[in-house]
Design a protein around this nucleic acid. Structure first.
Lengths: 125, 125
DNA sequence: TGCATACATCGACGAACGTCAATGTGACGT
DNA sequence: ACGTCACATTGACGTTCGTCGATGTATGCA
């Protein structure tokens, strides 16, 4: 299919639409300038991928619904996964910038990063 | 590690924190009731997974940034993927409820579903 | 110095994903 | 009926992901 075929079909569609129902004709203006470019999409996809796992979503909700901070030791049992698996998932959340990690003594404490959550939310609206 | 070990460490942490800095002690209240359960997390993860691919994000942006509707034939070239691949990705977006599909004659038209985008956005706040 | 603890990393496994060529399906126009 | 077109489905391939046992790292205590 080349661009001339495309144009021909668009005109045919527009004509038939006008004749039959006068419905919306959005064809022939396929891509607007405010669409995501490949680089933006790559970065955003990486962030959304951090939310694309049920275990990580629950871990994140444990962090966001807590009063400020949560100890890593309190995430293993409620998540129902092994300690290495929880550590793996928390690293993904931290790398995505959704959660901040702070080591104090033997323990690691996590807290949410509202700015990053806001950033992702703004993409959906 | 059992629950008694956990309690012992929490008390030790609380004590040392009070002695040294009187910092926040969020331990011993690990899981709040407003955390996601497994079923909710499963469904949300499936929706976010639809956004976890750069090609799908761009396809979605083509739809949302258009004036109402976009023809499937106008998605192949700007996405830079083959026609079967675009069809595959659009099916995932439709199954996730983010995009609505309507066949008119030979063509298929897509439009965004704002309600579903709102639902996902509310999870992040 | 030596041991115990909390968490991270490694290695391996099966499952799910993204991709495209080939083919199938359904709707036009002649 | 036939050919053509738009789009979906299939099948196969390599890649990435989630998971856990085993092991590594670093901190605290005696």
């Amino acid at each position: 299919m080349d661009v001339f075929d495309n144009l021909r079909y668009c005109f045919a569609m527009a004509a038939s639409t006008l004749i039959t129902l006068a419905g919306p004709v959005a064809c022939c203006a396929p891509v607007r300038s405010d669409a995501l470019d490949e680089a933006q999409a790559e970065g955003l996809a990486r962030s959304f991928a951090a939310l694309a796992d049920p275990v990580r979503l629950r871990l994140l909700s444990f962090v966001t619904s807590s009063a400020g901070e949560v100890c890593a030791c309190d995430l293993v049992e409620p998540s129902g996964r092994s300690q290495p698996t929880v550590s793996h998932h928390m690293k993904i959340l931290v790398d995505a910038g959704l959660v901040a990690r702070e080591k104090r003594g033997l323990w690691v404490w996590y807290r949410a990063v509202p700015a990053q959550l806001d950033a992702l939310r703004s993409v959906l609206g």
